[in-house]
Simulated assay, not measured.
Amino acid sequence: MMSNSVTLEEKVKPLHIKHIMEQIGLTDDDFEYYGKFTGKIRLEVMEKMKDKPDGKLIIVTAITPTPSGEGKTLTSIGLSQALNKIGKKSIVTLREPSLGPVFGIKGGATGGGKSQVIPSELINLHFNGDIHAVASAHNLLAALIDAHIHHGNELRIDVNNITWERTIDMNDRALRHIVIGLGGKANGVPRESGFVITAASETMAILCMAGSRADLKRRLCEIVIGYNLDGEPVKA
């Protein structure tokens, strides 16, 4: 199926992203271009659209994919195509794929056949860098925790009760449960930790839930990274 999808993609000339934006009523001021075919809608659009009626939301979830990879993504794309075909204005919203599934037996994460989004290679491999940015922010906090402990641990963080793990955009089972801080005093305090896949990290969840930049900052500050020696929560 994947080879057929690639063949079909090669036969299609993608539209400039500007044409797609015009179809849903957005202008250049509403959008940041990342080349000809991708980009990001500015957060200010939420304020611009606040007085317009809400659309209808259809959630596609909990589908077991077929051996050919027909699952939630392909179904969502096909459903959106069908709605547009009958005259409805429909937009499909997909999460950015993680590198683990992309390089595994599941293949890509952009649909397949005539129900796929393109350019698939760009989307599957980092896209516009959002997952990388989330991982960097998440791991910065993890590094700050260990640096704080190394430099005296003023907050009296219990090293055996730290709940904030690191993250990576790869479902590598060997990193799920690890020991860090080995190699002597200069390398930190030895303790158990682990990695979670970035798409399932708390930082990603907060980004998805935040309604504004101010709300995002507030939620990030409320993160509980673990507990002190008195059993009290320690926040970011």
Rank of each mutant, 00 (worst) to 15 (best):
E154Y: 11
E165A: 14
F127P: 04
A142V: 06
K114V: 11
G111Y: 00
V134T: 01
I105T: 15
H151A: 10
A143M: 11
R156K: 11
A186I: 11
I162G: 06
H177I: 10
N187F: 03
A133S: 07
A147S: 15
D130Y: 05
G112L: 02
D130K: 07
T167R: 06
G100S: 13
G112T: 03
R166V: 05
K185D: 15
G104F: 01
T110G: 10
F103C: 12
R156Y: 14
D146C: 12
F127I: 02
H132A: 06
R176T: 12
L141T: 07
H151K: 04
T163Q: 09
G152K: 07
V117T: 11
L125P: 06
H148K: 06
I131N: 02
N128K: 09
H132R: 08
M170N: 14
I145N: 03
G194P: 05
A142N: 03
N161C: 11
N124Q: 11
G111K: 01
H177F: 09
G188L: 08
G188A: 06
R191C: 14
S98G: 15
V134G: 00
G104C: 05
L141K: 10
N187M: 08
S193E: 10
W164L: 05
I105W: 13
V134D: 00
G111P: 03
L125D: 14
K114A: 09
H138W: 12
I180N: 00
D158K: 00
L99T: 12
A109Q: 14
G113I: 03
H148D: 13
R191W: 09
R173H: 05
I178Y: 00
G194L: 09
G194N: 07
N153T: 12
I180V: 09
N160K: 14
N139Q: 03
G100C: 03
G108W: 04
I157D: 02
L175V: 01
I162K: 12
I149W: 00
A142F: 08
G113K: 02
P101L: 14
K106R: 15
G129F: 10
I197N: 06
I105M: 13
E154G: 09
I197D: 00
A143N: 10
V159L: 07
V117N: 01
K114F: 01
A174S: 12
A135P: 02
T163N: 06
I105A: 13
D158Q: 02
G181A: 05
H150C: 11
G184D: 11
N128C: 11
A109P: 05
V179Q: 04
R156W: 11
T167Y: 01
N187H: 08
G184I: 07
G104E: 07
E192T: 14
A137C: 13
G129A: 13
N128F: 12
R166L: 00
I168T: 13
G181H: 03
I162T: 12
E154M: 12
G181R: 01
E154C: 05
V159T: 14
A133N: 10
R191M: 02
D172C: 07
E121T: 14
V159A: 09
A174V: 05
G184E: 09
